[in-house]
Design a protein around this nucleic acid. Structure first.
Lengths: 223, 223
DNA sequence: CTTGACTTCAAACAGCTGTTTGAATGCTGC
DNA sequence: GCAGCATTCAAACAGCTGTTTGAAGTCAAG
């Protein structure tokens, strides 16, 4: 019996405590380095609690991950009436803030970063539920900025250029802080960063505008 | 006794075989997932060989890593007589090729990617010996493209924008192949990718040129 | 109170890990 | 051949891991 159908209040309490503790530990140490004992210790639960409530360690990880996915779903895409260059700005800012913000539930950003590096199987769910929609949204923005005649491959590469700039801070933070000690991701720094990436990307996109489209270029540039 | 001072030929043979095998296994699985037994098995050596030749698993990892670092040192920076935008092109191409090329010693790219994510202590050496010089080289290029009056913070952020685009393919490959099955990093694809990043970045940089510098912009753009 | 389902607990289990040991082997210089 | 050294080997060790077990506890319903 992996998980009982009806859970009482105190049962749900330790279950939730396990989820919260597991989120932290998994984010800190990754799936394999995190130990069930450490998670249960932080949750104030018995070692057998994980297996009782989630079947096994992998089940707990999946539960934590899906819980984190639902939190991401709160991302509200901007209406398409807004100009594309403004939607790009909002997109980049939301993306950066979600990953770097050292706010309260700091772990689900790290968690997803780890999943990208060491896929454990739930990565497919993550791609389907969260990443692919976001990526499609960005593709729509870029396509609007580049015009109908832009090739799919060009649009795709431009999207990776934009996302790459954002994700870099997530994956390479250990190196960045060694290159520049005193690097902190405060709210202001994130704002400045997203503004920089937006400007850089809007200009960079103009390299792939169809020839003889000076009017469009100026439109995409005057951000 | 960690390592004997004088090593005979066959001794050096198994030592080298251990280094090669460890490079593959560490790159594939990371430091913690890699097992001494697997490494020794691939090297055709006894389990105790690692401890005999390198002291312990960490010692083997350090040796592999420093060996990989010496290989990277073969990167030849272009003379500064070449125009900056051409040096940027060469830099990006070399960077991408070094990390993505599925050539013979395919492992030291992956190895460094893993080290960025899960620093094991040798990361400091890596930053000092390899990453910082490369980063300084890129800073020099970007500064030349942006002009003397560009602020340090702007130059720095532009460098991260450029490197971020390159590193993205290294860290997020699991996601990218799920978003676009059939994605392969052939020699041609790497060429096209580096060309794209170069164009995108050269244009993106112009967003941070000092105002009223149309002449410089055209110089940086006509790549 | 008694029943019964749900939950917690301490203890142990089996498996894999890096590491050590001490004997056996191979090679070199005498 | 022999001593001395570097190297290899099979076996075992100690530690940590996820997981299981069976008893004890908890609480609501009859």
């Amino acid at each position: 019996m992996i998980r009982p159908s009806g859970a009482s209040d105190i049962g749900r309490a330790t279950r939730d405590r396990l989820l919260a503790a597991a989120g932290e530990v998994f984010a800190e140490l990754g799936f394999s380095h995190a130990t069930v004992r450490e998670i249960c210790s932080r949750a104030g639960a018995n070692i057998a609690a994980v297996n009782y409530h989630f079947g096994d360690k992998q089940g707990l990880y999946s539960a934590v991950f899906h819980y984190a996915c639902t939190l991401v779903a709160e991302h509200v895409p901007v209406g398409s009436t807004v100009p594309a260059r403004e939607r790009l700005r909002v997109f980049i800012r939301a993306f950066l803030a979600h990953m770097l913000d050292e706010g309260r539930p700091a772990w689900h950003g790290k968690l997803m970063a780890r999943e990208m590096i060491e896929p454990t199987g739930v990565l497919d769910d993550l791609v389907g539920q969260s990443i692919r929609p976001h990526f499609q949204e960005l593709i729509g923005i870029v396509r609007e900025l580049l015009g109908r005649r832009a090739a799919d491959s060009v649009v795709r590469r431009c999207c990776t250029s934009i996302i790459g700039q954002c994700v870099f801070f997530l994956h390479s933070r250990p190196i960045l802080v060694r290159l520049d000690p005193g690097l902190r991701f405060t709210r202001e720094e994130i704002d400045a960063l997203s503004e920089h990436i937006t400007l850089f990307s809007l200009k960079g996109l103009t390299a792939f505008l169809p020839k003889r489209a000076g009017l469009q270029e100026s439109a995409a540039t005057s951000a």
